[in-house]
Computed example of a mutant assay.
Amino acid sequence: MATNADMLVDHFGRILEEVDAAVAGLGPAELEARLDDEANSIAWLVWHLTRVQDDHIAEVAGLEQVWTAKGWHEKFGLPFEPAETGYGHSAEEVAAVRGVTAKQLAGYHRAVHDQTVAYVRGLSDEDLDRVIDKNWTPPVTLGVRLVSVIGDDLEHVGQAAFVRGVVERRKG
Rank of each mutant, 00 (worst) to 15 (best):
M1E: 04
T3Q: 07
T3G: 06
N4R: 13
L8K: 03
L8V: 05
F12I: 14
G13H: 07
I15L: 15
V19A: 07
A21L: 12
A22K: 10
G25W: 13
L26K: 06
L26C: 04
A29W: 02
L31P: 06
E32L: 03
E32F: 02
R34K: 14
D36C: 12
E38V: 10
I42F: 07
W44R: 07
V46C: 09
H56N: 10
I57W: 13
A58R: 09
E59G: 03
E59F: 08
A61D: 11
G62K: 08
G62A: 06
E64P: 04
V66D: 00
V66L: 07
K70N: 07
F80E: 11
E81S: 13
P82T: 11
A83Q: 10
H89P: 00
E92H: 01
R98K: 13
R98H: 05
R98F: 00
L105P: 03
A106H: 08
Q115Y: 01
A118M: 00
G122C: 01
D129C: 04
V131W: 02
V131R: 02
I132F: 07
P138L: 06
T141E: 04
T141W: 05
V149G: 08
D153A: 15
L154N: 13
G158R: 11
Q159F: 03
A160G: 08
A161Q: 11
R164D: 05
V166M: 08
V167K: 01
V167H: 01
G172L: 07
